[in-house]
């Protein structure tokens, strides 16, 4: 999980966990995935954005749960026995992410990945590292660490204070110091 190979690794194929949000298929670095689990009752957090469903107790650790379907207006946010939560571990920080479904684990060679053009998707292109094509289907590759530590997710303190104005270096836990919140919202 601490493996920082991420998007820069070249050579043999990289492994992605693919998941669906609405009609789109996404992929994220499988090394960032801690586990996949069902949706439990969450504890509501006061005055938090709607997509932050609350927090759960994951074996004694308190973990926030975000619903990407609400965040990006994709699909319908229903919760039933089939609702899936991907538990992501970003350099020790744990976040749960609700998606419509988890499809597969795929290996993509660099040739199968193309740069992301400006296009209209639920996700801001800043968090997209590229587009993959597998069996004729398009896969949107997400920089999950960058997305989760962005100010718009409001998952961290120093981003949270003024979401609408400043550009502060954030995420003191992650080594990715170059990432900046620039506070724009979708």
């Amino acid at each position: 999980m601490q493996d920082e190979k991420g998007a820069t690794r070249s050579g043999e194929g990289e492994e992605y966990l693919t998941f669906t949000l609405g009609s789109e298929e996404y992929g994220m670095d499988i090394l960032k995935v801690q586990e996949i689990r069902g949706y439990d009752a969450v504890t509501h957090i006061a005055n938090s954005p709607e997509f932050l469903k609350g927090v759960i107790n994951l074996r004694g650790v308190i973990v926030p749960i975000v619903d990407m379907r609400i965040k990006f207006n994709l699909g319908s946010a229903v919760y039933n026995d089939f609702t899936v939560v991907i538990i992501i571990n970003l350099s020790g920080r744990v976040v749960g992410m609700v998606v419509d479904g988890v499809s597969d684990v795929l290996s993509l060679t660099p040739e199968q990945v193309k740069a992301a053009p400006e296009f209209s998707s639920g996700l801001d292109t800043r968090y997209i590292t590229g587009l993959g094509t597998v069996n004729g289907q398009m896969l949107i590759l997400v920089d999950i660490e960058r997305l989760m530590s962005s100010s718009e997710m409001q998952l961290m303190d120093n981003c949270a204070e003024d979401t609408h104005t400043s550009a502060l270096p954030m995420d003191n836990k992650s080594a990715q110091g170059e990432q900046l919140c620039n506070g724009s919202t979708i």
Binding site: A46, S48, V61, I62, V63, P64, R93, V94, V95, L155
Partner: peptide
Amino acid sequence: MEDNYRKVE
């Protein structure tokens, strides 16, 4: 709460 989230007012 700050380990994985942030302080809640």
